[in-house]
Simulated scan of single mutants.
Amino acid sequence: MLCAVTDKDLIFRFLSRQSELHIYELGDLEDDYFAHTQWYAWDTEGVEALALLYTAQKPATLIAIEDHVEPAYERLLEALLPGLPNELNVHVSPRLAFVFEAAYPVRSCVEHLKMIWRGKADDEPGASEGLLPAGMSLHRLEAGDIPALRDLYAAGYPRNWFDADMFAHGRYFGVRHGEALIAAAGTHVCAPSYGVAAIGNVATHPDYRGRRLARVVSAALCASLSRDVAHIGLNVHAANHAAIAVYRTLGFVDVTRYCELQLSR
């Protein structure tokens, strides 16, 4: 049967059985984010399926990811449908996407890949700096760099998801050419108390592409995070073959695929 769940320990125990699959959800157990979450379970003789509705942004985002065929997830989503918002983003395992067709016209459906880092934890954060051309330098970014970071994203990654709270709760590395910030990588999730982090907001200024700068900042970020968390993951558009190739050279491997749906009714 469908039930709302507020017990953070219960949620953690369920998610941590497959931490690599649920890095974003585990990150949302941090107090600042948990206040913006609603959790729903299908529970007969224990939790069999779990979904997260994240409401901090409009439209809200529903996350329901599995890595094997589990009928309880279908039952959970079908039971949730009548009470979900009319405008909704959904991250869902591909085989479950059909559930929403009964209640929503699907505006878009884009396949993404979840990856997990299997790199070496003893890599030094600055080890990649030797790959940089003369005149460029690698830095861990600070709050004063946020305006330059916003400018970089406006030029090189205008559709990215970034706000100052993500910086305050996360970790960012950047490459400068002189005083100009020309590449950066940061975190969407950084939750050491739950052992997880997810990298994102990886961008290079269009004038500096083709110089492996995304690899440099991502490698430094992973090495730094590996000192504090057990699981480092990311989500990437399945058609972004160039980015996937870079991540694989850093030691990321595939975990699963999911569909990102935009729904409106």
Results as ranks from 00 to 15, higher is better:
D31E: 13
A239C: 10
L138P: 01
V5D: 06
G195A: 07
I63D: 01
G126L: 11
L152F: 11
C222M: 08
Y153F: 15
F98Y: 14
R17E: 12
V99H: 04
V196W: 09
Y157V: 02
D151R: 12
P71S: 13
H241D: 11
V246P: 05
D165M: 15
A4W: 07
R265W: 13
A243F: 06
N86W: 12
L29S: 05
N160K: 04
A191E: 10
L62G: 03
P133R: 01
A127W: 08
I63F: 05
S264H: 12
L81N: 10
G210I: 07
I182Q: 04
S226E: 10
A185K: 02
L76M: 05
A102R: 04
A97W: 01
A183N: 01
W39Y: 15
V90T: 08
A127C: 14
F100P: 01
Y208V: 01
C190W: 02
H36L: 08
S218P: 10
T61E: 09
L88W: 09
R140S: 01
N160P: 08
Y33Q: 10
S224D: 15
L138D: 00
R13H: 08
D165Y: 11
R159L: 10
N160E: 12
C3T: 08
T204D: 08
A242L: 13
V196L: 05
E25F: 01
A60L: 06
Y153M: 11
K114P: 01
G186M: 03
T37I: 07
E101N: 13
D123K: 01
R212C: 15
Y258D: 06
D151S: 15
A41T: 08
Y208W: 14
R257L: 02
E70G: 05
E70S: 14
R211D: 11
I232F: 07
P105C: 10
F34M: 05
N89R: 13
D151C: 12
G119H: 02
Y33L: 13
D165L: 12
R171T: 14
T249G: 07
A238F: 11
R227H: 12
L113I: 04
A35T: 15
R257K: 15
A134Y: 14
L53R: 03
L113G: 07
Y247L: 06
G130L: 12
N89Q: 15
A79L: 08
N86C: 04
M136E: 07
T187A: 06
D123C: 12
